[in-house]
Design a protein around this nucleic acid. Structure first.
Lengths: 160, 160
DNA sequence: TTTCGTTAGTTCAAAGTTGTACTACAGTGA
DNA sequence: TCACTGTAGTACAACTTTGAACTAACGAAA
């Protein structure tokens, strides 16, 4: 990763932008998490699981696909899904095609919880993010983070 | 907070931008955390504590000021500082001005750890964020998140 | 000065997260 | 068909975070 003697410190402008970004994203996700939790009794992770399932035929996904999609460790997903299953939001069924696999699918109750939660969560996102920015600012934000995501997906293998 | 019947769903563009933002920030903070942890043995929270202390005269701050600054609960800060104290990075001293208070200050060892960590962390931030964007994009990102932060600080009291 | 509300920080127990180790099955290839 | 390597998911133990309850001290008002 290049020589270790030369450090390219952040300029004053970069430092400011970096701190705004770090603090802003941290506080934003705090607020969104708290609002979702207090109004709907869902963590953002659980909400995310329900959203992903809702977008599939049969409202069903393999555990590993879910884990990859929301960038959680397998272990963490197992715990999350177990808790959600205990509350009747999802259920697990052995996968017929691959006996190692488990299909996670949304229950009717899970669907209802999602339908109730979605408008509230969308409103939160609007209130604290989308409507705070101009449409151009928000699109630019999306484009920038898309570039970052892109870089991270392709990136860290070939440092050569 | 307005009537509950009308839901302003996100447009397709907004949805895309929101998902890029959410996933991008999540994956970015994951990577930065892992790199800092593996190269320096510090969590980003611990690093942040050291940075804040390093910027003060006497490299000392009150516990509550630290907690507010990095938006952590008091409880969480107590735990974090206890762990850091056990590793010799900081120390706690009763506050002479206010007998309820505790001053947290950085040790010489804490300083050395920070000095070693800073260039590596800055390089991480450059590699995965700053250098992935154009300077204009990065400044725009900072400005946008600054607006969000601003809104959150002033915001949630007066919805009238 | 005593009482009351507030602030500072810690403690405790419950819940969530992490990484490793483990079991079971799948898909090669000899 | 047998071993072998890889993949799917869970179990376990250690660690971190959360929120509420608690102790102690400050500051103001009666």
């Amino acid at each position: 990763m290049s020589t270790s003697t030369e450090v390219r410190w952040l300029t004053a402008d970069e430092q400011r932008a970096w701190r705004s970004f770090r603090d802003g994203t941290a506080r934003l996700s705090d607020v969104l998490a708290h609002e979702l939790e207090s109004t709907c009794g869902l963590s953002v992770h659980e909400y995310e699981v329900l959203v992903r399932l809702s977008e599939r035929d049969g409202r069903t996904m393999r555990m590993s696909e879910l884990a990859d999609g929301i960038a959680h460790s397998r272990s963490r997903l197992t715990h999350t899904i177990r808790r959600m299953e205990e509350r009747g939001l999802v259920e697990r069924v052995a996968c017929s095609a691959d006996a190692r696999g488990v299909n996670c699918s949304m229950t009717a109750q899970g669907w209802e919880v999602l339908v109730a939660a979605a408008p509230l969560h969308v409103q939160s996102v609007r209130t604290h993010l989308v409507d705070v920015l101009t449409p151009e600012q928000f699109q630019a934000l999306g484009a920038a983070m898309d570039a970052v995501r892109e870089h991270l997906s392709g990136g860290p293998c070939h440092t050569d």
